[in-house]
């Protein structure tokens, strides 16, 4: 137990901050994912074949390629791509991107592909009459989406989004390969310096279980809130 003490003698505080880092990366990645879903869901539902193709390309590629490979692409290719863009604007210095940004972008793009599928499914399962009724009442496009479709869609999407959240949370463990100090990386460091990998990796597993357990409880509450009236 003294291995987990806070302060200089133990790894308690380090692992505590690492857990906070995991939560931070997961939330950022989830939000980045929502942003991508916001772009690609309309593309997948569009009437135009070309736009459909772009949307399908995104979700198929990301969901068919291992997460680790995507992370390596971002890790090794990220700063190169940014420097290339910067060179167009006449900036030729070396740019290094922070591991947090690379990591949450990579995981965000992955979780975005899953969120896109969830939103597409949710929108498609809303009764067509709802769209027509909104149109007939003369509500503008913006109001149609935010006041009528979105609230109904969220109720259908939340159970599946909770799955996406679980996947995202577990995927953050892969960012440890880029050196960002989250639970997995911190356990690796602790295991290396104390020569006690069994204890620290098991403890990491317990931390992840705790995170998934708590987030499930919170999401269940959200689910009840959004299914009022059903």
């Amino acid at each position: 137990m003294e291995l987990l003490a806070f302060g200089k003698t133990g790894w308690g505080d380090e692992l505590f901050y690492a857990t906070l880092m995991t939560i931070a990366v997961s939330i950022t990645a989830m939000l980045v994912g929502f942003f991508f879903a916001l772009i690609f869901t309309p593309l997948k539902l569009s009437k135009y074949k070309t736009l459909n193709l772009v949307g399908n390309f995104y979700t198929t590629v990301i969901r068919g390629v291992p997460e680790l490979l995507v992370i390596y692409l971002f890790f090794f290719g990220g700063s190169g791509a940014i420097m290339y863009v910067a060179s167009i604007f006449g900036y030729y210095e070396y740019i290094e991107i922070n591991a947090f940004i690379t990591g949450s972008m990579a995981i965000g793009i992955i979780s975005g592909a899953y969120s896109t599928e969830v939103f597409r499914g949710a929108i498609q399962s809303i009764d067509k009459g709802q769209f027509e009724a909104a149109k007939v009442l003369g509500i503008n496009k913006f109001g149609q989406f935010y006041k009528i479709i979105l609230p109904q869609m969220l109720r259908l999407a939340i159970p599946n989004l909770s799955n996406v959240w679980q996947i995202t949370l577990k995927d953050t463990s892969l960012i440890s390969v880029t050196g960002l100090v989250e639970i997995m990386r911190q356990s690796y460091i602790a295991a290396g310096s104390t020569r006690d990998p069994l204890f620290f990796y098991s403890f990491a597993a317990v931390l992840y279980l705790l995170l998934t357990y708590v987030s499930m409880k919170l999401i269940n509450k959200l689910e009840i809130r959004y299914s009022r009236g059903y």
């Binding site: 440890s176 997995m184 295991a191 990796y201 597993a205 992840y208 279980l209």
Partner: peptide, 23 residues
Amino acid sequence: SYIFRGTPLLVQIFIIYFGLGQI
């Protein structure tokens, strides 16, 4: 099933590969 679905696969591999050798 709860434990193996609630933790990342990476942790599971590390426990088995690095951890079990310690016993």
